[in-house]
């Protein structure tokens, strides 16, 4: 099926098997392998990308459903020469070990910070309050991204320092 997806700002025309997930379209067709496959079942968050600014598990979504959408993957956030503030914070806080969950964690962080900005509450948000960037909020909102290396404390620290740098 013919599908056009704007990936990291560039329109990409694809002819895809309708069974192809957005994750496999990125990884196997566009060779953007930054988004990782940890489970292929929406259980780990390694494949997190931003679709029209919202974080999703790209393994749980068929690519052909994204005709006309704007997808931002880790490759669209920054490069080794010009790191995104979240990427830089992950590096300096050592918020990863093997690095396999990391692109997903970083995309998820970018999406989550936007959700906070938009005052979207979570289970941790006191009723009626505007959500703040507390440890509890971060932990709750980032629980869809598993890190088996368990860099969780470092990830919380990185998110806080990135948010500060971006403020």
């Amino acid at each position: 099926m013919r599908t056009t997806i704007t990936v990291n700002g560039q329109a990409r025309a694809l002819d895809l098997d309708p069974r192809t997930t957005l994750l496999d379209a990125l990884r196997e067709h566009l060779r953007l392998t930054g988004a990782k496959k940890g489970c292929d079942h929406g259980q780990c968050g390694a494949c997190t990308v931003l679709v029209n600014g919202v974080r999703i598990n790209s393994c749980l979504s068929l690519a052909v459903m994204h005709d006309g959408d704007e997808v931002t993957s880790i490759e669209g956030l920054g490069t080794t020469e010009a790191l995104h503030p979240v990427q830089r914070a992950f590096l300096t806080e050592d918020a990863f070990q093997c690095g396999y969950c990391t692109p997903g964690q970083i995309c998820s962080t970018v999406g989550m910070l936007a959700e906070l900005e938009a005052a979207i509450p979570s289970q941790e948000t006191p009723r009626g309050a505007k959500p703040a960037l507390t440890d509890a909020e971060i932990r709750e909102r980032m629980s869809g991204n598993i890190c088996r290396c368990s860099a969780y404390p470092q990830i919380v620290a990185a998110i806080k320092s990135a948010a500060e740098a971006m403020a």
Binding site: A35, K36, L77, L83, G99, P103
Partner: peptide, 21 residues
């Protein structure tokens, strides 16, 4: 010091086995 290969990992450009060209 920060991880030597860290910049590649945070940018998604470190090729793992299935991603090698």
């Amino acid at each position: 010091v920060d991880r030597y290969e860290g910049p590649l990992k945070v940018t998604g450009t470190a090729p793992y086995a299935y991603e090698v060209e």
